[in-house]
Lab assay of single mutants.
Amino acid sequence: MKGKVVSYLAAKKYGFIQGDDGESYFLHFSELLDKKDEGKLVKGSMVHFDPTPTPKGLAAKAISLPLE
Rank of each mutant, 00 (worst) to 15 (best):
S64I: 11
F16D: 02
G3Y: 01
D34G: 04
E38I: 08
S7C: 14
E38D: 04
L41C: 03
S30Q: 08
G3L: 01
Y14E: 05
L58M: 11
T54Y: 06
D34Q: 07
G3D: 00
Y14H: 05
G44I: 02
P51R: 07
F26S: 03
F29Q: 07
K36Q: 11
F49P: 00
H48S: 13
A59D: 03
G22M: 06
Y8H: 02
K13F: 05
A10D: 06
V6P: 02
F26T: 03
L32F: 04
S45T: 15
D37V: 08
A62K: 14
P55R: 10
S64V: 11
E38H: 08
P66M: 15
Y25I: 02
M46Y: 12
K40G: 07
G57H: 03
K35A: 10
D50L: 15
G39W: 14
G44C: 08
L67W: 12
L58K: 10
S7H: 11
K36S: 13
E23Y: 14
E23M: 14
P53Y: 13
H48K: 12
Y25H: 01
P55F: 09
S7N: 11
A60P: 01
G15T: 02
L33A: 07
M46P: 11
L27N: 00
M1R: 06
L41F: 03
G3W: 02
L58G: 04
S30T: 10
F29C: 07
G57A: 03
T52E: 12
A60L: 01
K36P: 04
E68S: 12
V5F: 02
P53D: 11
K43R: 11
L9P: 02
Q18M: 14
I63P: 02
K56L: 10
D37C: 10
H28K: 07
I63W: 00
Y14K: 04
Y8R: 01
V47G: 01
G19W: 03
K4V: 14
K2A: 11
P55Q: 09
K35H: 09
A62I: 05
E23N: 15
H48N: 11
A11S: 13
K13E: 03
T52W: 15
T54K: 05
L27S: 01
H48R: 12
L58Q: 06
S30N: 13
M1D: 03
G39D: 12
P55C: 09
S45H: 10
Y8T: 02
K40T: 04
K2N: 10
Y14R: 05
K2C: 14
K13A: 05
L32Q: 00
E23G: 08
I17L: 05
F29K: 06
E38G: 06
A59M: 14
K43Q: 09
G22P: 01
L32Y: 02
I63F: 01
Y8C: 04
F16W: 14
Y8W: 07
V42D: 05
G19Y: 02
Y25F: 03
K2Y: 12
